[in-house]
Simulated assay, not measured.
Amino acid sequence: MYEPIRRKSVHTMAGPATSDFPHRSREEELDIQLAGHLAALLATTDELRALTPSGELDTAAERLVQQVTRLRGGHRPVRTPGAPASETTAAPLHRRAHALAGRALVVAASRADTAAAILAAERMDAHDAALAAATTSTSTSTSTDQRELATH
């Protein structure tokens, strides 16, 4: 009564042997995402280092390089030595770095990468502390300026 189906349904999944494009596992996709977030954090760290050099930022940059290299299977990230800061003050860079570290932390936690998660959390704390210090120094200088204006 009905004619039998002679070809495969468009809804069936093609097997790996018949696939026209490579498939990546969830872990590989998370590795790529995490490496991307850490590489962006490294670029921002390099901008901060160019704006306000410090040993702590140098150490953080080296640790980021190690993690990105590990996640990329031994390929080191491309870096621009002495990258010029796109911002004139460090606060916007610290905010960007804090956000990037937060994204890296979420991905590292979802792939259960303890080393990357610890590094991302430490970087979040460091950038949060730098922002708090910048806010405190800004409010102190503003108060001083206001007092000077009041005395004149």
Results as ranks from 00 to 15, higher is better:
residue 130 A to N: 11
residue 122 E to K: 12
residue 152 H to E: 03
residue 106 V to S: 02
residue 152 H to M: 06
residue 24 R to M: 11
residue 32 I to E: 09
residue 123 R to N: 11
residue 49 R to L: 10
residue 9 S to L: 14
residue 85 A to H: 00
residue 73 G to N: 10
residue 99 A to F: 10
residue 133 A to Y: 12
residue 11 H to Y: 08
residue 149 L to R: 14
residue 101 A to R: 03
residue 138 T to N: 07
residue 54 S to Y: 01
residue 22 P to Q: 10
residue 46 D to Y: 07
residue 35 A to V: 08
residue 106 V to C: 01
residue 70 R to E: 13
residue 68 V to F: 14
residue 130 A to Y: 06
residue 61 A to V: 10
residue 67 Q to I: 10
residue 56 E to L: 04
residue 96 R to I: 13
residue 81 P to L: 04
residue 73 G to A: 03
residue 65 V to D: 05
residue 82 G to M: 01
residue 122 E to Q: 13
residue 141 S to Y: 08
residue 20 D to L: 15
residue 121 A to D: 04
residue 80 T to H: 06
residue 116 A to W: 05
residue 139 S to Q: 15
residue 41 L to C: 01
residue 32 I to D: 04
residue 85 A to W: 00
residue 32 I to L: 05
residue 57 L to P: 00
residue 131 L to R: 10
residue 17 A to Y: 13
residue 58 D to V: 13
residue 94 H to Y: 13
residue 22 P to K: 06
residue 2 Y to G: 12
residue 48 L to F: 00
residue 77 P to V: 05
residue 54 S to P: 04
residue 33 Q to Y: 03
residue 27 E to V: 11
residue 146 Q to L: 13
residue 14 A to I: 12
residue 112 A to K: 12
residue 58 D to W: 00
residue 9 S to V: 11
residue 134 A to I: 08
residue 32 I to C: 05
residue 142 T to P: 05
residue 114 T to K: 12
residue 80 T to D: 07
residue 107 V to W: 00
residue 28 E to M: 03
residue 144 T to C: 06
residue 94 H to N: 07
residue 90 A to D: 09
residue 70 R to Y: 07
residue 127 H to C: 09
residue 95 R to M: 07
residue 104 A to C: 01
residue 95 R to W: 03
residue 85 A to K: 02
residue 45 T to V: 00
residue 65 V to M: 15
residue 21 F to W: 09
residue 25 S to V: 02
residue 72 R to V: 08
residue 73 G to W: 14
residue 73 G to S: 12
residue 22 P to W: 03
residue 9 S to F: 15
residue 58 D to S: 11
residue 38 L to C: 03
residue 147 R to L: 11
residue 45 T to Q: 00
residue 92 P to S: 10
residue 16 P to H: 13
residue 104 A to D: 02
residue 4 P to V: 02
residue 84 P to S: 10
residue 149 L to H: 13
residue 73 G to F: 10
residue 84 P to T: 05
residue 93 L to A: 15
residue 61 A to W: 02
residue 126 A to G: 00
residue 114 T to H: 13
residue 136 T to V: 09
residue 77 P to N: 08
residue 67 Q to M: 12
residue 84 P to F: 01
residue 30 L to Y: 07
residue 47 E to H: 00
residue 9 S to G: 09
residue 87 E to M: 13
residue 99 A to H: 10
residue 15 G to C: 15
residue 11 H to G: 08
residue 25 S to R: 05
